[in-house]
Simulated assay, not measured.
Amino acid sequence: MFVAPRYGTGSLADLFPSLLAGLGVPGEVDRLGLGCTADRICVLLVDGLGAEALAANADAAPFLSSLVPAELAAGFPSTTATSLSSLGVGVPPGEHGIVGYLINVPGYDRLVNSLRWRLHGEGPKVDLLRELIPEQFQPNATVFERAAADGIAVTQVAPHYQAGSGLTRAVLRGCEFRPNVSTGDLVAGVAEALRAGDRALVYAYHGDLDTTGHVRGPSSDAWLLELAHVDRLAATIAEHLPPNAALVVTADHGMVELDARIDFDNTPPLQDGVARLGGEPRARHVYTTGGAAADVAATWQEFLGADFHVLSRADIIARGWFGPTVSPHVADRIGDLVVVAAGSRGIIRTGAEPLQAMLIGHHGSLTPAEMNVPLRVHRT
């Protein structure tokens, strides 16, 4: 069972525009009906926290579980680079253009890693920040730029490696960046930033739960213990909110554990007619050689069976999974075929992506565990 992205009514892309409307920014609409009119708002993004996983482990997260439960849907694919782009620009992937983890960009002989803003695989070293200018690659105004233009003090509190990164410049630009070195420092940074100006908007990122889920699995004791730390982090931020403020907690995707893997690098039938394989194990962009798309689609569907949906670019655009509008230059980044996991398997690459192939937890598809993310609001 797939969860369709609820663009315009209940997706990650709708969160910040709804909050900006509550902050009084002209032209913004409360698409989610939040009615959040606080003067100071912190959005805490917990990487990898699925709504299903939170509900199933409510005892480990008493603070988050005490808040009124609500959900948002991630966009497609349900992966960090795409979700943060939808969150930061306030539009679906078909408009902001970050349509996956590894994507084809015309003019390059290798795939672009949109999360790390570098070329994937072996080849000459390229300074992609100089060649593929993030502000030109994604030229739409971000929600932070729109908020700052209306006089709101906007701050991002996140690990230092995200400062000035390609993804930050592309989809999260327009705010003051405050690097944090620990969870305590994150709380202190949020508390300080919320007291700036007459109105303040703070975006805080926490990534340890996602890392734990990838390496140990989202059903592991380690993940459950990390969830308890995340809950305490959110509760501590709530304790330090100034008057007339709100804490909004959400995530970029959930996660599943693979029970079987198909290794593209050691499966010759899947390689025929494939020029490049992008995306990630649960949502693959398949870029085919000239005229081979139909044959590749038939081969892949027969080999993979009902656990995967093999769709053409035209089919997946028609389904609206990338949004109601897909710009022509964005369509060129989507695979000739898009292969989406329906079961608990994934398509790995032990040769080209050895570290990713070893991970236990994965995401990217449209299953409820991957797509549905929590939305929790605490107000002072």
Rank of each mutant, 00 (worst) to 15 (best):
Y7A: 11
G8P: 02
T9F: 13
T9G: 10
G10N: 10
S11R: 05
S11H: 10
S11P: 03
S11V: 05
L12S: 07
A13M: 12
D14N: 11
D14A: 14
F16L: 15
P17Y: 12
L19P: 01
L19K: 00
L19W: 01
L20H: 11
L20A: 11
G22P: 04
G24Q: 08
P26S: 14
G27Y: 13
G27S: 15
E28N: 12
V29P: 09
R31Y: 10
R31W: 08
R31D: 04
L32N: 09
L34V: 00
L34T: 06
G35H: 00
C36I: 03
T37K: 12
A38V: 03
A38S: 08
D39G: 14
D39M: 02
C42V: 07
V43M: 00
L44D: 04
L44P: 01
D47T: 02
L49Y: 02
A51V: 10
E52Y: 11
E52V: 14
A53E: 13
L54E: 03
A55R: 14
A55Q: 12
A55V: 04
N57Q: 03
D59A: 13
D59G: 04
D59M: 05
A61M: 04
S66H: 05
L67S: 09
P69E: 13
P69G: 13
A70S: 15
A70R: 14
A70W: 01
E71N: 14
L72Q: 12
A73Q: 14
A74E: 02
P77H: 05
S78R: 03
T80Y: 03
T82C: 13
T82F: 11
S83Y: 06
S83A: 15
L84R: 00
S85V: 05
L87Y: 15
V89G: 09
V89E: 06
V89F: 12
V89R: 07
G90R: 08
V91M: 10
V91R: 10
P92H: 02
P92T: 05
P93G: 00
G94W: 07
G94P: 04
G94D: 03
H96P: 06
I98N: 04
G100Y: 00
Y101H: 13
Y101F: 15
V105L: 08
V105D: 00
P106F: 09
P106Q: 10
G107Q: 07
Y108S: 09
Y108Q: 10
L111A: 04
L111T: 02
N113S: 07
S114H: 02
S114T: 15
S114F: 05
S114A: 15
L115N: 00
R116W: 08
R118Y: 06
R118T: 08
R118V: 03
R118I: 00
L119M: 01
H120W: 04
G121D: 02
G121M: 03
K125T: 14
D127K: 12
L128E: 09
L128I: 08
E131N: 08
E131S: 11
L132F: 12
L132K: 06
I133C: 07
E135F: 02
Q136Y: 11
Q136P: 08
Q136T: 13
Q138Y: 09
Q138F: 09
Q138E: 13
P139T: 06
N140I: 07
T142V: 03
V143E: 15
A147S: 10
A148S: 10
A148V: 03
A148C: 03
A148N: 02
A149E: 06
A149Q: 06
A149N: 04
